[in-house]
Design a protein around this nucleic acid. Structure first.
Length: 412
DNA sequence: GATCCACGGGAATACACGGATG
DNA sequence: CATCCGTGTATTCCCGTGGATC
């Protein structure tokens, strides 16, 4: 993050002839503090939010764009910066502020709908921005948190709350958030900003639309990541252009492929990304796949189940195996029961993290389904903490457990 | 002790198909 | 032939339980 660390990392990476300098900066799920190539949308959003500079609550505004167009990155970065300027009572801004700064306090909270899906979790997420004290994770009631939110927003203080991914399955909807703010009695002190692929139903506020990245913009995005995450000269311009062209405007796909390419090159002991590594990166990202962060937002055991499925799918496609058999196989390698694994698999398919495939059965009764992962497999395995090596329920391991981090880049 | 939340298990419901019935 | 019914399997839904946290 800070300059000194960056320089140190560079220097040590150079000494070690290391390709990947900073995995964090290469990860497609990590946002930059300065979004690349989204200047016009940034200005547009600032236009709408401008009343906050006069201590007013801004009007409702939605931010929309297709997957990989940088909606989250934009709002995350902008809210972070605005919060720095306007969210702190003790910090005045500008040099000639006439009014007392405390009258101008507006907080900017970015609530990730993928991770915040209950009433309790929502108030907690908001409160953790409004309050400097740590907010308890449990042990207190939802009513308590709701009251604390209300108390923090007294005396002319306001908040702008972004609801990211409000239109994905199982996430907090905009309507639900309005209800929660209403029941806390702070609806008139908070502007909720839906962020997603489309505006909420019956939306009549302002809208800031982000188009998919154009190819040259995506080149900038990839170059920016490569320059901070990898040793200098780690990837040539031609490969970057190829990746940008292939990703067709989707920054997530481009960065996921770059990440996998870098991991593959590193595993090869190469000091730069070669064409075959780029191919490997592209092959890892399924067409019409889901964002890696959707998988990483799942609870630990669900991630584990997904990791097992991904591993099975890499060995042999799971597309032809009935879900019950897959569940049994996964359960044998984990601490979960077959029933629970099966339910998780149905759930993941329902959420769109897995593709559900109809298969014909030869017996009687309803036809079973098969499932196949829709996340970039290698990227997911590299980024997840879910270990495949927890103790299995039974002892029937087939002895094929591989050490974590072993990246098979041969073949396929 | 109070609270939230992930799990686990099982009940309820949906679906596919063959055979019986009108 | 169209419809209903029974059986078997898949899928969804619900609720009690226990771990973690305060």
């Amino acid at each position: 993050m800070n300059l000194r660390n960056r320089i140190d990392r560079r220097r040590s990476a150079r000494g070690d002839r290391q390709l990947v300098v900073d995995r964090e900066h290469l990860s497609p799920t990590v946002h930059r503090s300065e979004p690349v190539g989204r200047g016009p949308a940034l200005e547009q959003l600032l236009d709408v939010l401008e009343p906050v500079f006069d201590g007013q609550l801004p009007p409702p505004v939605a931010v929309v764009g297709p997957q990989g167009s940088g909606t989250s990155a934009l709002v995350f970065a902008l809210f972070g910066a605005l919060n720095d300027r306007l969210g702190d009572v003790d910090r005045s801004f500008g040099t000639t502020t006439r009014a007392s700064p405390s009258e101008h306090v507006t907080w900017f909270a970015h609530v990730d709908g993928r991770r915040v899906d209950s009433e309790f979790a929502f108030y907690r997420a908001v409160l953790s921005v409004l309050s400097r004290e740590p907010v308890p994770e449990s042990g207190i009631g939802t009513d308590d948190l709701r009251e604390r939110v209300e108390r923090r927003l007294r005396g002319g203080r306001r908040a702008v709350v972004a609801i990211d991914h409000h239109d994905e399955p199982e996430t907090l909807t905009y309507g639900r958030v309005r209800d929660l703010l209403e029941s806390a009695g702070v609806a008139d002190r908070v502007t909720a900003v839906p962020v997603g692929r489309q505006v909420p139903d019956d939306w009549d506020g302002a809208t800031v639309s982000l188009p998919a990245y154009r190819s040259h913009e995506l080149v900038d995005v990839i170059t920016d990541r490569a320059s901070t995450g990898m040793a200098a000269g780690g990837i040539d311009h031609e490969s970057v252009r190829d990746l940008a062209e292939w990703a067709d405007g989707n920054a997530h796909d481009a960065l996921a492929a770059l990440f996998v390419a870098a991991v593959a090159a590193e595993a090869d002991g190469a000091d730069r990304i070669a064409d075959r590594h780029v191919d490997r990166g592209r092959a890892d990202v399924p067409p019409d796949g889901v964002h890696l962060d959707r998988a990483l937002a799942l609870s630990e055991n669900r991630q584990r189940v997904l990791a097992h499925l991904v591993a099975l799918d890499e060995k042999r496609s799971t597309a032809g195996t009935p879900i019950g058999d897959l569940a049994a196989e996964i359960a044998a390698r984990s601490s979960l029961t077959t029933g629970t694994v099966k339910r998780f698999l149905y759930e993941l398919a329902e959420r769109g993290v897995l593709e559900r495939i109809r298969i014909e059965s030869n017996g009687s009764g309803r036809n079973p389904s098969a499932v196949a992962p829709l996340v970039p497999a290698t990227a997911f395995r590299q980024l997840t903490d879910a270990s495949l090596e927890e103790s299995p329920r039974s002892n029937d391991t087939d002895g094929s457990t591989e050490p974590r981090g072993s990246t098979d880049t041969a073949g396929s």
